[in-house]
């Protein structure tokens, strides 16, 4: 799952980014409203956005309203140092899905993001499940046939992606971006390596691949 973080404060941005990585997300971090608008206004892969309101060059509220005007429905959680109710109301009315006032607890930010992602997928349960596989994004635990399944961090993120987007296909580009983000220069086969490791743990029939469409979990 790939998140976009827009926060101009270096120490806070760094902390949120590391915390979200710990929570099992791939995070891109921008420090500027104009850059954020540039990225979000073109086709993007982000599953959710964490947006600070007081941003240089382009105000967070401005980014938010322009984005909603484009018809983008990506879940957006707004962070702000202004805790007054009318600020929150303006933020929510402009198109924010949730609101968190600084300073906040990292766990709450993660929980709210998980909830946003659950709602965007119209899931009732906080668990993602497929056949006898269950994944809890809050604890990053996976069970296979009621047995705890040990996955590496990348395998977990890959499974989370496939579960979240089921029954839709994810292209190689989308998968690579959501898994590894923009920064890393990965070897061309590293996605295949992780996919094959996951197949070994879930069963060889678990992940379907259609040339030109990409990957998805097999039918239930």
């Amino acid at each position: 799952m790939q998140l976009l973080l827009v926060e101009d404060d270096p120490l806070l941005g760094d902390g949120i980014k590391e915390g979200l990585i710990d929570a099992g997300y791939t995070v891109e971090w921008l420090q500027d409203g104009q850059d954020a608008w540039h990225v979000l206004s073109s086709p993007h892969q982000f599953d959710a956005v964490v947006l600070d309101l007081s941003l240089p060059r382009l105000d967070g509220l401005q980014v938010l309203s322009q984005l909603r005007a484009l018809g983008d429905t990506t879940p957006i959680l707004v962070l702000t140092a202004r805790a007054e109710p009318d600020e929150r109301i303006t933020g929510l009315n402009t198109g924010a899905d949730d609101y968190l006032a600084k300073p906040f607890v990292l766990g709450e930010l993660v929980a709210r993001l998980n909830a946003l992602l659950r709602r965007s997928q119209q899931r009732a349960s906080h668990l993602l499940s497929w056949r006898d596989v269950e994944l809890n994004p809050a604890t990053q635990q996976v069970w296979l046939a009621k047995q705890a399944l040990e996955l590496t961090a990348t395998e977990y993120r890959l499974l989370y992606l496939l579960l979240h987007h089921y029954p839709h296909y994810l292209s190689r580009n989308a998968l690579e971006e959501k898994l590894f983000g923009w920064q890393s220069e990965l070897e061309s086969n590293s996605l295949d390596v992780h996919l094959s490791h996951l197949r070994k743990k879930l069963g060889s029939e678990a992940i379907r691949n259609v040339r030109g469409l990409g990957w998805r979990l097999a039918d239930v």
């Binding site: 404060d9 915390g19 710990d22 140092a81 006032a101 600084k102």
Partner: peptide, 28 residues
């Protein structure tokens, strides 16, 4: 208002330092 952001940053970094699963992240 201006104190909220540094406090939020401080709080997050301390949370990471105490509970990040990654050794390097805790240290940083």
């Amino acid at each position: 208002h201006e104190l909220r952001t540094p406090l939020a940053a401080l709080r997050i970094q301390l949370e990471l330092a105490s509970s990040s699963p990654r050794e390097q992240t805790r240290h940083n």
